[in-house]
Amino acid sequence: MVYPRCRDFLLITLCATTVQSVAAQTLRILNWEDYLADEVIAAWEQQSGWQVEQVFYDNEAERDLILANKAVRNIDLVVIGDEIIQRMGKAGYLAPLTEQYVEGLAPIWQGSCGDYGSPYLWGSLGIAYRTDKVDQAPANWKDLLYPIGAWQNHIGMIGQYDELLGPAMLAMSLDPMSNDEGHLKRAFELLKRQSESVLTYEYAPSYLSVATPEEQEELWVTQVYSGDEYTLNDLYGSQVWQYVLPEDGVLLWLDCLAVVASSSNQQAAQEFIQFLGKSAINALDSESVGVATPSLTAKSLQSEEFASDQVTYPPADVLAKARRYKPLDSENIRLRTQIKDALIRYHDSK
Rank of each mutant, 00 (worst) to 15 (best):
R5G: 13
C6V: 10
I12Y: 13
L14G: 13
A16K: 06
V19I: 15
V22K: 13
V22F: 14
V40G: 03
W44I: 06
Q46A: 14
Q51K: 15
D64F: 04
D64L: 12
N69G: 03
N74E: 11
I75G: 05
D82N: 09
Q86R: 13
R87I: 10
M88K: 14
M88N: 08
L94T: 05
P96W: 10
T98W: 03
V102E: 00
A106W: 00
G114H: 03
L121W: 01
G123K: 09
G123T: 14
A128F: 05
Y129K: 01
R130G: 02
W151S: 04
L165D: 05
L174N: 06
D175C: 07
P176T: 06
N179L: 04
E181V: 05
G182T: 12
L191P: 09
L191W: 10
V221Q: 07
V221K: 08
V221G: 02
Q239S: 15
V250F: 05
W253K: 05
A261G: 08
S262D: 08
S263M: 01
A268E: 10
I273S: 02
Q274E: 13
K278P: 02
L284A: 11
S295D: 02
Q302E: 12
S303Q: 09
S303M: 08
E305H: 07
F306R: 02
D309W: 01
D309G: 02
V311H: 11
A322F: 11
Y325I: 08
L335F: 04
T337E: 11
K340Q: 15
S349C: 07
